[in-house]
Nucleic acid binder design. Structure first.
Lengths: 215, 215, 215, 215
DNA sequence: TATGAATGAGATTTCATTCAT
DNA sequence: CATGAATGAAATCTCATTCAT
């Protein structure tokens, strides 16, 4: 009998192995690893990487997509349980979301690379798939959100996109090279040394309250 | 010391020429140009670029710094003229800031590259200088802001940093490759096709109102 | 031994399928297709190609061999019907051979690749088999030729090889990339745009007349 | 004073160094060497090769061009000294041309690669320049030829192209891998073991006589 | 026999930076 | 100061071939 094509499970398992290797390398170096590094870390040959991903960038977009899926998966119940009143809603969302994202360095970090780097060498198909997933997730979550908040009627997804922008932007504003020791000590730079989680919590609280509060 | 002054002028002039060339190339291609391209556009030899900048990335950080300076220069009077009441303040800031930034594609775009790309190959000194300038500017504007809004006492600079994060993050969330034609047409992707200025205005309004309104 | 006969048939059928696929792909792209492409076009798995051919190049050598066989099969009756007199002989051979070859792009094209490319990665056995077939065909046709032309006594095969060289060489001299549009238009390049069939006819006529005419 | 741009002499010298290295490697291996090999043989860095040639193939086209120029340079006086009578003309040209080309393995060998390999990765500009040179050389030599032979009036260049085709084609028909030992010994393959120079001489003599002789 | 996943050598080219002049 | 030739590390991706099933 011929050796059968890989089952979906196997295919998925290999992708997962590569994604895990890529994520680990990225987390530790802060830079996009080379395909050779990823392959070695995953214990496969360089060429084998291209059986699962069309370009190197596709690996990281896949990573980002997965992270984003998990974020949405966590966000939906949060939105469903959200109080209707503005202040309560903000207090409900901001701490939970900021705490979650503070744990997801790679998500934010990769998201910040998406435009500048990843999309440069991404096959059109992969790119569109990614964008569609993003759009779909936002639409779903936006619909849930709108059910809780009449004030956002028709703008739920857009507001979530603004929220998402705040998260990734604030991360970039506060993120710093690990090697930048001086940042740790210099008093003038204290402002850039703020705690990401706390700041994001504040900012989210303000934005959500501001968007939901009656005026 | 006329000779030195002249030299300083010349030095500054060359820097300005290079910066202008780099900015133009970046604006038109959407990618970081090569040193050779910058040199050619500026009418100097490739090696001469390194008389003014220590690395290629330093050029773009300098560009970013300039843009940031101009932004602050425009922001300060805006803050000084800001009404104290929350809703009025938000209505005062949001449209002006979003309109200004909508004109400053490069500022936002470069800012989005700062972490992912530019800082990877930036001499420590340049990096610190940039961060200090950023911090100083935020501190100044933060002080002005705090004078207008008791509610932000002690957190003016931090709030401006959050605002800054919102601006660059939202830009990235909405920015898209010009080549991505499908994005223009596909209805599912409509959410990613929103108008940056309008969305930023909304988001800023919400965040500022939320931060300033008494609860 | 019915089983063996059947197996041989199957083997032959598969080879034929692969050869047809390879030829089609080569004709349409003008380049040596990859093994993956051939396998797909033939409807078999990549690995299965290697059950019929030891290397990719062997496929194209086999193709070339077939074309050559057909050429000889057509040439033999032509030679047998050739008039003895030089001018008549040349007028008999040149138009027929040039017309036939003008229809056989792949034969000439592949023949031109034989030395440069195909033989680089051809197992010795295949190479020898190909050369033997070539030599045998030339010897046969040469013998027939010599029967018609006493002037070529002992040099019939050699003369046919010269003729063969003229055909493939002239093809290369006149062949041009389809993409080379400029060649179509530029007047300076007119010389390289001559009609292959007509030129070959001229050249063959001259060479055969020159070789057969008494001096 | 700034380091001046390379003079034409220097530029030419470097090109010549690279060409010599490439030719030597090609002669000894029979295959297109890699850029790394060429660079090493020429004593320069890999990247430096690209200061002189846009692609690897451009190197070999340049080599071919040079060889072709030399061939034409030798051919012109030969044509000018050519007797008008057909048999004498053929006896004048055939031995000289075949003797010269028998010394120019690389010319013929590279010419055989031009279509199949070299033109695959040649920038359009280089390709056209090569073709133009070829066409120009043929036109010049063709004009000289026509002055000596009324019979070829209007077809001098075309006839030279046919001659050229004969030369490169016959070379390919007789060329064999050095590694192909069996060819040396097997009697069946004797036909493919003929002496290139002698065969080319015969073929040229026949073709030129046939083309010039009155009928 | 048939499959097709896995291999991994291998090659081209780019480009930031240096440094002799 | 200015130049631009020279460097050479770096990295992606292809593809013929193998071999476990």
């Amino acid at each position: 009998m011929p050796r059968k094509a890989l089952t979906d499970d196997q295919r998925h398992a290999r992708r997962a192995t590569l994604l895990a290797a890529a994520q680990t390398l990225y987390r530790h170096s802060g830079q996009l690893p080379t395909v050779a590094q990823i392959a070695e870390a995953a214990g496969v040959a360089k060429g084998s990487v291209y059986l699962s991903f069309r370009t190197k960038e596709a690996i990281f977009i896949a990573l980002l997509e997965d992270s984003f899926d998990r974020l949405l998966a966590g966000l939906l119940p949060l939105l469903r349980a959200m109080p209707a009143e503005a202040e309560a809603a903000a207090s409900h969302i901001a701490p939970a979301l900021s705490a979650y994202l503070a744990e997801q360095r790679e998500l934010l970090s990769l998201a910040g690379m998406a435009n500048a780097v990843l999309e440069q060498n991404l096959p059109l198909a992969e790119m569109l798939a990614f964008k569609r997933r993003l759009a779909l997730g936002l639409a779903q979550a936006g619909a849930v959100l709108e059910m809780r908040t009449p004030r956002l009627a028709g703008r739920g997804a857009a507001f979530l996109l603004q929220t998402w922008g705040l998260c990734i932007g604030l991360w970039q504003a506060l993120d710093a090279h690990p090697g930048l020791v001086a940042l740790r000590d210099e008093p003038d730079l204290a402002i850039l040394r703020l705690d990401f989680r706390a700041e994001l919590c504040h900012a989210l609280d303000a934005m959500w309250f501001g968007a939901l509060a009656p005026r």
